[in-house]
């Protein structure tokens, strides 16, 4: 017999469970609001449109200007380099693991990729600054080019390596989820294995691969330590990846670790940049999720 006392105890527990679940919502709202209100305050002092499209970023001066376009451009450049490294290598690795390697070999390769994914980004940052950046300077030298010691290229390459496991692991899952009947159908028509992969398997898995790529993109945009340690501080609107550039995350860190007053525009610019970062990564994540949902619906898969 269930007593009323037992019931009220159950109710308290259930209330606690719901309360715990709501924390995640509170966190998101908390992040949004903590960024949003500071950003609004910033935009009351400085022009919103100049922030988005202005080309001069000069904090800490009389008549400081906050045009973030060079910062966005630097983020874009480093991110594109990262994706140029990570997408071919990541998808190629995924195809190798899911289509060509034996089960045994795959069971070894996947944990190795997980090691790469588990390396803290501060470590990648040190590696970029200590080894990759000087290497790029000397390699550029052989070709008669000058590269900065904090070049966008060095950051981009290391960031690319950082997101390889994300793309490879998710793509591998998706490729393996493509039903075997598709493989058999193509092979039975006299297609080679690689033709089957390129024309049938990869297109079938494309929503999932796109989703993986977007997730990698979102990680690259939000990545902080690699760029803080290996990229420049100078907003630089340039197409040359050998020059130093700065990113949104670098500027956020720089304006918050300095000795500015909390309500100075210098500090609050960090929140304006944070708002942009929040919106962009949120949108990317939403698209990524909808892509993977599309893939799941197509093949009625629940395990991804």
């Amino acid at each position: 017999m269930i007593t009323t006392k037992g019931n009220s105890k159950e109710n308290i527990i259930r209330f606690l469970l719901i309360f715990a679940s709501v924390i995640s919502i509170i966190t998101t709202i908390g992040i949004l609001f903590s960024i949003f209100f500071q950003a609004i305050e910033f935009f009351q002092l400085k022009s919103f449109w100049y922030f988005l499209f202005g080309t001069e970023w000069s904090p800490g001066q009389e008549n400081s200007k906050f045009g973030a376009l060079p910062i966005f451009a630097g983020t874009f450049m480093i991110t594109v380099i990262a994706l140029l490294v990570a997408i071919p290598v990541g998808v190629g690795s995924a195809i190798y693991m899911s289509e060509y390697s034996s089960r045994l070999r795959r069971n070894i390769l996947k944990p190795i990729l997980e090691i790469l994914a588990g390396i803290p980004t501060v470590v990648y940052g040190f590696f970029a600054a200590l080894t990759i950046a000087p290497a790029i300077v000397s390699i550029s030298g052989w070709f008669g080019l000058t590269a900065a010691y904090n070049s966008a290229l060095a950051c981009g390459i290391v960031m690319g390596v950082m997101i390889i496991p994300i793309i490879a692991s998710l793509s591998d899952d998706v490729l393996r989820a493509v039903p075997n009947s598709q493989r058999n159908a193509s092979l039975a028509l006299g297609m080679t294995h690689s033709e089957t992969i390129r024309h049938i398997i990869v297109p079938s898995a494309m929503p999932g691969i796109i989703s993986a790529g977007l997730l990698g993109l979102s990680k690259a945009i939000g990545e902080t330590m690699i760029v803080v340690m290996a990229a420049g501080l100078r907003p630089n609107l340039s197409w040359n990846p050998l020059e130093d550039m700065t990113t949104v995350t670098v500027r956020i860190v720089d304006s918050l670790v300095g000795d500015h007053a909390f309500d100075s525009p210098d500090t609050m610019s960090a929140f304006a940049l944070g708002l942009v970062l929040f919106v962009v990564t949120l949108v990317l994540n939403m698209i990524s999720l909808s892509q993977i949902r599309k893939f799941k619906a197509k093949y009625k898969i629940n395990t991804l």
Binding site: G30, I31, L215, L277, L284
Partner: peptide, 19 residues
């Protein structure tokens, strides 16, 4: 929300902590 929380860049959690 949980899904999005996992995708928010870590530095933004720092902004939350600060603010």
């Amino acid at each position: 929300n949980i899904n999005n929380l996992a995708a928010i860049p870590s530095i933004l959690f720092g902004l939350l902590g600060l603010a």
